[in-house]
């Protein structure tokens, strides 16, 4: 079997996952998209394991690890989502903007409001 088929599929799946992470608002949907991306990676791992006939079976072993970690991740992720929902009654990712730079931008670094007014 050509390597190209599974690898291309993995690339496309990954891109779909990227789109989902970037475009979806619901945190749970974002988690699902992340799963898609993880699976794309898994596919690659398996493909190359088979292609290279790895004696350590590292591709498959790592795939198993990834699956386990993904399970843990989803568990933790959902816990966090629940916490957020409990605190804010919303899990829309683009509304969590506590990191935003809030005060109005100043023209000169370190300039106080009074000075700016005076300069005008």
């Amino acid at each position: 079997m050509h390597v190209v088929y599974p690898v291309v599929l993995a690339a496309l799946l990954f891109s779909v996952g990227v789109y989902g992470v970037l475009a979806r608002r619901n945190a749970i949907l974002v988690l699902m998209s992340v799963e898609l991306m993880l699976n794309a990676v898994n596919l690659n791992l398996v493909t190359f394991d088979a292609w290279l006939k790895d004696t350590l079976a590292s591709g498959q072993a790592l795939t198993l690890f990834v699956i386990a970690i993904a399970a843990a991740e989803v568990g933790l992720g959902l816990a966090i989502v629940l916490l957020v929902f409990r605190n804010r009654s919303s899990i829309a990712v683009d509304q969590l903007r506590d990191l935003a730079d809030r005060d109005a931008p100043s023209a000169v670094p370190g300039e106080t409001v009074a000075e700016r007014e005076a300069a005008r």
Binding site: S15, V18, Y19, L22, R24, R25, N26, A92, D94
Partner: peptide, 19 residues
């Protein structure tokens, strides 16, 4: 109706680019 954020176009561009 509001499952997609306003970031959809940029996301599409990036995703297509990645692909």
């Amino acid at each position: 109706v509001d499952l997609d954020s306003g970031n959809r176009v940029a996301a599409l561009v990036v995703a297509l680019g990645t692909a």
